[in-house]
Design a protein around this nucleic acid. Sequence first.
DNA 1: CCTTTCTATGCAATCGTTTGCGTTAAAGGG
DNA 2: CCCTTTAACGCAAACGATTGCATAGAAAGG
Lengths: 335, 335
Amino acid sequence: MAVTIKDIAKKVGVNPSTVSRVINGNASISEETKRKILKAMEELDYHPNIMGRSLVNGSTFTIGLVINAENQDAFSNTYFIQSVTAIEIAAEKQGYNVLITSGTQRNDKNMVKDLVLGHKVDGIILPAASITDDLTDLLTSNHFPFIVMGEFENPTPDTLWVDMDNEQGGRLAVRHLVERGYSHPVMFVGERKNVFEQRRIQGFKKGMAEQHISSDQTDIIECGSDKSSALSSIHALMNSEKSWDSIICTNNFVAYHVLCELKKRNKRLPDDVGIITFDNYPLAEYMDPPLTVVDVDTYKLGEQAALMLFEKIKNKKSSYKNTLIPTRIIPRMST
Amino acid sequence: MAVTIKDIAKKVGVNPSTVSRVINGNASISEETKRKILKAMEELDYHPNIMGRSLVNGSTFTIGLVINAENQDAFSNTYFIQSVTAIEIAAEKQGYNVLITSGTQRNDKNMVKDLVLGHKVDGIILPAASITDDLTDLLTSNHFPFIVMGEFENPTPDTLWVDMDNEQGGRLAVRHLVERGYSHPVMFVGERKNVFEQRRIQGFKKGMAEQHISSDQTDIIECGSDKSSALSSIHALMNSEKSWDSIICTNNFVAYHVLCELKKRNKRLPDDVGIITFDNYPLAEYMDPPLTVVDVDTYKLGEQAALMLFEKIKNKKSSYKNTLIPTRIIPRMST
DNA sequence: CCTTTCTATGCAATCGTTTGCGTTAAAGGG
DNA sequence: CCCTTTAACGCAAACGATTGCATAGAAAGG
C-alpha cells in the first residue's frame, strides 16, 4: 500500500540499500543516481517507515513525558502545559516526537516499563511526583536516559533533575517585601516533606537573615492547599499576638483565599497587608488586586529538561549537572 | 541486550512463534507450555518490542495529537489541556499512547505527513485551526483516520468533527441574562470568519427571538481579543445611544478587560451591567466579581474525539456523526 | 600496461514479531 | 484396526529499513 524504499529502488533501477544510503547521506553515491533517487522520492511522495527504521537502529526518535492526569486541578495543569510545549518544541528541533502518558490506567511503573523496556521511547521525562525507588532502579539498571522535573528525595548519583530555584525564590520574596516597606513577612508552606517546600523554607530563613529580621519557627505556618486550610491558617494568624505585615504563600490558590479573607476583614492590600505567592499561574494577574508572584520560566524549565535528556540520549554520559532555573519577582498590586 | 521473544523461547525450549502465540492468545497452546512460557516471561521481565510488533501488523498503537504551540497565550492553552488529558486517558484505556506534535518546526502539513505516511501513528486528532484543504486531501486519500476538534469550513463528507455547541451556548446566554432580569443583551464577537463565532451569533439571534427581544445588527459588536480592542469596543458601546444592559463576551480575556473598564467607570456589576462570557478558564472564577460563563465540558470534548477516532481506526467506517457537546451556564457574580 | 586504491553499488543478514503453512501425534469415528 | 480430524507446535517468510562485506569498474601510480 504505502510507498517503501523498495518502490523507489525499483523505479530508479538500483538496490534498496543505495536508496537507504542517499537518505542517510553517509556513503559515497554518484551525483547522478542521487539525483534520480531524490527525484523518485519526490514523485512517489516517499516517507520512511519509522518502525522499520527503528527496528534496526534501536531508536524511535520519540521521548516519553509522564503527566499527572489524576491531578485534575486546573492550577498545576495550566502551569505544566508551558513546560510540555517547551519540551515538544525542543524535541522537534532534534527530530524527536513527544509521547505523553499518564499513570491512571496502570500504575506508573508498569506504564513506564512498557514504554521503556518495549523501546517505544528513547528517553523519558518525569515529574518528581511520579518518582519511586523502584522506578529509578529500573531506569538506571537499564541505563535508560531520563530526567526528573523537580528535585526529589534520595536521588542516586546517576539521576539528573531540573527544578526552579525554590531557595532563591524564598530569598527574593523576603527581599521584595522589605523593599516594598514591609517589616515582618511570614510564610505559608504546604507539606514540609516536599523537597521544594523545604527549599523555600531555607530561602525564607536565609532571606530573613539577610534582611536582618529576627525570625523564629512561628513565622513559618503550615497551610494545606484546600480552601478551609487556607482560611484556618489566616484566621489563626490574625488572631495571634504575632507581629506580621505580609505573607508569602506557597501557591496562587492559597493566596487567593487568603486575599479574599483579608478583604472580607477590611484589610487593605497592599497598604495593610502585602501578599506575594510562589508560582505565576495565568490567573494571578487577573485577581483583585493582581498578585505579586515569584515567577519561574516554566518554558525554560521544560526546555532545559529536554536538552538534558537529549544530551543523555546521545552521550549516555551527560555533562550536565542538576539544574536550577532562576526565579524572579513579578511585582503587581498585592505588595 | 534487551530480553526478546527468542530468549524466552530458548529458556522454555520452544519456538519463538509459540511464545508469540501465547502472548497474543489467539491459537491453541497446551496449558503446560503456556504456563511455562508465562513463567519465563515473568522471570526474565519480558516486555514486547513495540517496533517489531508494529512492523508486521502495521499498527503502532499510538495516536497523534496536534497542538498549537505557536499559540502561546495561556488562556487557550489552559483550556486545551483538559481535552489533552481526556484524550490521553481514553487512549490508555484502549491500550494506545498519545503522541503530541506542534507545527512550529516544519509546517503543519509536512509534520503530519511524516507521522501519517511514516506510520508513526494510527490516527490523528487535530484542532480546526490547523486544518487545510491539502491536509484533508492527504488524510482522506490515504484513508487515514482523523478527527477534527472544532467545526470548520468546507468539511468533506468523510471528515468528522466534534465541537462545543456554540449555538446553544448563545441561546442559553441570552436566556440566562433575561432570567437574571436584564432586558437587552449585546454580544461581543471576534473574527466572524471563524465558524464558532458564526454559530454563537446564530445562537444569540435565536435566543433574542425566543425571548421576544427586538434585536438588530447593532447588537452584535466586533471585538478583537487584544486589550485595546476590548477597550475600544466597550468605549464605543458606552458612548452610543443604544440601550443595553448586559454583554455576552466571546472569551474570558475580553470579559476581563470589559469588566475592569466598567468598574473604572463606576458601573456596578451585576446591578448596572451584567457580563457573561464564553469559555470557563480556571481564572474566571477568581476575578472580581467572579464571571458567569458559558461552560463546556472540555474533558468530554476530548474524550468524545478520542472515542470517535478509535471507532474510525477499528472500523474504518465510523458510525459516529459530527458531534456537539452541550454547554451550560455556570452562574457567578457577574450577572 | 600492470598493480593498487578508491568510488559506487549490490548482496544478504539483521532488528523483533507475527502468521500462513506444514507436520506430528493424539483423539475420535466407523 | 484404519482413516480422518484436530490440537499443538515448528519452520520460514514476511514487515521496512540499515549496514558490513563483497565486488566491479574507474582512477591513479609506477
